[in-house]
Design a protein around this nucleic acid. Structure first.
Length: 164
DNA sequence: TCCGTATTGAACT
DNA sequence: AGTTCAATACGGA
């Protein structure tokens, strides 16, 4: 076998997300891109472990999309540097309905000047939503940016009761 | 080594 | 009040 990455789709009310799993766990989660792929079809010999993770991922994803805190998360295996992992780790500690600025995150990882680097790490985040990068706002409560489009970020925040 | 970035805060008009 | 500028930290070519 070639260390294959398994891609499975998650159908939500907001579109079809694509989850990518490695033998280690969930490695990446993509927003709906509109391109219809063969999807989970052709799943001949997908180990039960993938389906098990997928079930958890699907539940967690839908919970966050509904503005609620997921009960359980699948094993996350993000690909990135130590710095990025630190940033993502801080993000995961942000409670639902609460936002944090890039500067706050920078301080949390002990690099108060690395605000822009934090932004870069957010953009490099392979697992949006489950790693709540959408709860990161600019210092002046501005939206900043978002991988899947600012429309998503705005919508997700609104569902958590965060208003501007 | 240089450039780009999902920032920030201060100066300027 | 809106806009421009320089600074800072990290990743990628």
């Amino acid at each position: 076998m070639k260390n294959q990455i398994v891609e499975l789709s998650i159908a939500t009310t907001d579109g079809k997300f694509t989850a990518k799993y490695t033998p280690e766990g969930l490695a990446e989660l993509d927003f709906p891109v509109g391109r219809t792929k063969g999807a989970g079809a052709g799943s001949n010999e997908i180990p039960a472990q993938f389906h098990r993770w997928h079930r958890i991922t699907e539940s967690a994803l839908k919970s966050v999309l509904a503005g609620q805190k997921p009960k359980q998360l699948p094993p996350l295996v993000p690909t990135g540097t130590e710095f990025q992992k630190s940033v993502w780790n801080v993000m995961r500690k942000i409670p639902a309905g609460r936002t944090k600025s890039y500067g706050e995150v920078a301080q949390a990882i002990g690099r108060p000047r690395a605000v822009r680097a934090v932004g870069g790490a957010c953009g490099a985040n392979p697992i949006p939503i489950l790693v709540p990068c959408h709860r990161i706002l600019a210092a002046n409560k501005k939206l900043g940016g978002f991988s899947g489009g600012l429309d998503w970020k705005r919508k997700l925040l609104a569902r958590e009761g965060i208003v501007f």
